[in-house]
Design a protein around this nucleic acid. Structure first.
Length: 200
DNA sequence: ACATTAACAGGAA
DNA sequence: TTCCTGTTAATGT
């Protein structure tokens, strides 16, 4: 059957799940860990586009039309991925209405995420950026994760929102004194999700 | 002013 | 030991 071709991959921290310009052959789901969708500039600077947490999927763009990957995907910590090969992907796309519904809602949510990023870019208040960045990782469709504790360190968060690690540190103490989060070692616990999303 | 990079010490894992 | 945090000082816009 079609599902026979699903396969699972284990990735070490800081290893590539796929490289830029690679030919896409599967839709990538995250079972465990965290993926960073990024690009490296000519000067070697890292730009992070988005993250994918457990339960999320990435890479359908390069499957829906025949093209090479436009970015690289890296595991930021030990990560387990499940791969839905291109043949099975198109098989499901042709035949399964539930699969199409899932795909549509997934694409729709990612679209609104990127529309939100344009707005995000224009509000430059670093603390607000950090607050929104944390909130975005609680997206119910893109990151179906019920846990209120995020496994992300301050440098990672800075990469995600485009702020330095040191400034993230300041932002986190502000958000903690505001009673929205609690800082931890390599993690953040969100105590008030709604207020965090509406911050300030 | 305010953010960024670089560098450091100290604590957690 | 390595990783992460919290903090400085110097530099840039």
């Amino acid at each position: 059957m079609a599902f026979d071709s699903l396969y699972v991959r284990h990735h070490e921290a800081r290893s590539y799940v796929c490289q830029r310009n690679e030919i896409a052959d599967s839709w990538i789901g995250v079972l465990e860990g965290f993926l960073r969708v990024q690009d490296t500039t000519a000067e070697g600077r890292l730009i992070m586009f988005t993250g994918v947490a457990a339960g999320g999927w990435i890479g359908e763009g390069s499957l829906l039309k025949p093209e090479q990957r436009k970015y690289e995907i890296m595991a930021t910590r030990p990560t387990v991925t499940v791969h839905l090969p291109r043949s099975t992907f198109s098989w499901l796309l042709e035949r399964s209405i539930p699969f199409n519904h899932f795909m549509l809602s997934h694409l729709n949510e990612r679209l609104s995420q990127f529309i939100g990023m344009v707005k995000f870019d224009r509000l430059l208040e670093p603390t607000v950026r950090v607050a929104r960045g944390i909130s975005s990782l609680f997206h119910p469709v893109l990151y179906p994760n019920t846990d209120s504790m995020l496994r992300i360190n301050q440098e990672e968060l800075g990469l995600l929102v485009g702020v330095s690690r040191q400034r993230v540190n300041i932002a986190l103490t502000e958000l903690e004194t505001a009673g929205l989060i609690q800082r931890g070692y390599g993690c953040i616990t969100v105590t008030d999700r709604q207020a965090l999303a509406r911050y300030p």
